[in-house]
């Protein structure tokens, strides 16, 4: 599974503080720890930590790349912030641009911009596209699939390889009133999205969102991840430092025959997956 590590995000207080104090060491440590824990990519999100989002994105990228070469996932809804990160990044090992909706009321062409930036960033650059359009986040299965189909269609028209496309079906907090139907809706949507292109686009979710505000957060995250994996989820933005969660990833991949079983399958999962 392609694991995008979520911790370098200005929403977390330690990261917010490090950004404010320009403390590279905190960021470098997080990058290193998440890489050792098995991250395929490191998500980089400025969050609400700074007014100068573009400059902060650049500072984060540079701070991380001083300590490790793990590919990054630049996380912003603003193309300008992504572009700023791309200016200073070494994207040789790949980069993910995270994320764009199909379109927005204020910017009909936003997905085109992300694709263009990915094309410029090199052959290993991918994008995450959300099943969301100018009408907002759909609640039902069919609209999610319809938007995903339009995303795939747009990528194809642009000659953008489906293997460079991640579709994020948007996980909503299960604790929100009437939201308990959503996890199953997402799984049903995934069942269809994987057939939209051959090779199939990747499917990803921002996993921790599902347990936002709930008790037993880690347990909820783990169980949903295993369920989604069996419906074709092959990537997730997760807390790779959650060891129990990582064990679920390793076990799910083994049970789905994506990793060959050995008595030490848990122990070797992260080392085996390292690029």
């Amino acid at each position: 599974m392609i694991l995008i590590a979520e911790r370098i995000n200005g929403m977390f207080t330690d990261v917010k503080k490090a950004i404010a104090e320009k403390d590279k060491q905190v960021i470098g440590e997080l990058a290193k720890k998440q890489t050792e824990a098995g991250a395929t990519y490191l998500d980089v999100n400025v969050g609400t930590a700074a007014a100068d989002q573009e400059g902060t994105m650049q500072w984060l990228v540079e701070s991380i790349q001083e300590t490790c070469t793990t590919p990054l996932c630049l996380d912003s809804q603003k193309p300008g912030v992504i572009a700023a990160g791309l200016k200073v990044i070494n994207a040789k090992g790949g980069v993910i641009l995270n994320s764009t909706p199909l379109n927005k009321k204020t910017d009909e062409e936003i997905m085109d911009k992300y694709i263009e930036m990915a094309e410029q960033a090199g052959p290993k650059a991918s994008i995450i596209a959300l099943t969301m359009d100018k009408n907002g986040v759909p609640q039902d299965i069919d609209t999610r699939v319809a938007i995903a189909a339009e995303i795939v269609q747009k990528a194809m028209e642009k000659g953008f390889d489906s293997r460079r496309l991640f579709i994020d079906t948007i996980v909503l907090p299960v604790k929100v009133p009437n939201a308990q139907v959503q996890p199953c809706n997402i799984l049903a949507a995934m069942d269809q999205i994987k057939y939209l292109a051959d090779p199939a686009p990747h499917m990803t979710v921002g996993l921790s969102n599902i347990s936002q505000g709930a008790t037993e957060r880690s347990l909820i995250n783990r169980v949903f991840l295993a369920m989604a994996a069996s419906h074709g989820l092959d990537s997730a933005i997760v807390d790779v430092l959650d060891e129990k969660l990582m064990n679920v990833v390793a076990t799910a991949e083994m049970l789905m025959n994506k990793q060959i079983y050995s008595d030490s399958f848990l122990k070797v999962y992260t080392s085996v997956k390292k690029p």
């Binding site: 060959i260 079983y261 050995s262 008595d263 030490s264 122990k267 070797v268």
Partner: peptide
């Protein structure tokens, strides 16, 4: 036995 094969390599 592919499972044992992997395990020996790990060991």
């Amino acid at each position: 036995d592919i499972n044992i094969a992997k395990q020996v390599n790990i060991l």
